[in-house]
Design a protein around this nucleic acid. Structure first.
Lengths: 119, 119
DNA sequence: CACTGTTATGTCCGACGAAACATATCGAGC
DNA sequence: GCTCGATATGTTTCGTCGGACATAACAGTG
């Protein structure tokens, strides 16, 4: 049974890094565009851009590099640092699941299995 | 340098378990009272109680056992399950820091060190 | 130079969550 | 049976966050 949908969120003072930002980074890396990445995950462009802004401001160097204008209107891509942070986050997720498998199983087994969600 | 104040938050569907609830559980275990635990961490009783209610509802069995009335007005304590969950959460935190030390250091080193917080 | 798609940014408003305030209940002890 | 301290629960207010909408800037292409 895998009822334990686990999400990892890191707080560094003001900056916080969680599944949302991580997925957004991944989406930008794949799509090459902030708006496309946001669209794909049902997020308004403004929200996506605000997340990017928060990340770029929160880290010493920008994670996302963007350009506007041009043939395709512009685009965005991960910087070296951005790729590093994303990879580290994914690795951290994996290690957490691996190293904490016992504890996660312990807690997960005690969670009420509410498959019958009323709404 | 340890600028990386890390917090771990787990999501199990509706239920979420993070530093706030974990600290509250620990406080209840120490103080023997929901209100005292909440007071100690600058939290209104209502909020503390709502967190307890959410946990008791979210897990298959209650984590906190409470009694009202009596000489001291009542009190609360962790159940067996509550102690287990708290211990597992603390262990998970420790394992995350241990197993993910490399990644945490990688990300932490890239975070803007904003000691000069404007407010 | 108009067109195009994306980045970049502002304003406005509703919804949601949290805090503040207000009670009600309970039960051992005096 | 009155008091006390803590649990238990409701109501109301308020601040904040996010979504909807609007607009400007940009640069390559035809």
């Amino acid at each position: 049974m895998t009822p334990t949908r686990l999400m990892l969120r890191l707080y560094f003072g003001e900056l916080m890094l969680g599944p949302g930002k991580a997925d957004l980074l991944a989406g930008i890396a794949e799509e090459g565009s902030i708006s496309a990445a946001g669209r794909r995950m049902g997020m308004s462009y403004k929200r996506a851009w605000m997340l990017v802004e928060a990340m770029n401001a929160g880290f010493a160097e920008p994670l996302v590099e963007s350009a506007r204008g041009g043939a395709k209107g512009g685009g965005a891509a991960l910087t070296e640092v951005g790729q590093t942070v994303l990879a580290a986050y994914r690795a951290l997720e994996a290690k957490l699941r691996e190293a904490g498998a016992d504890e996660l199983a312990t807690i997960g087994a005690l969670v009420r299995c509410d498959m019958s969600d009323g709404k």
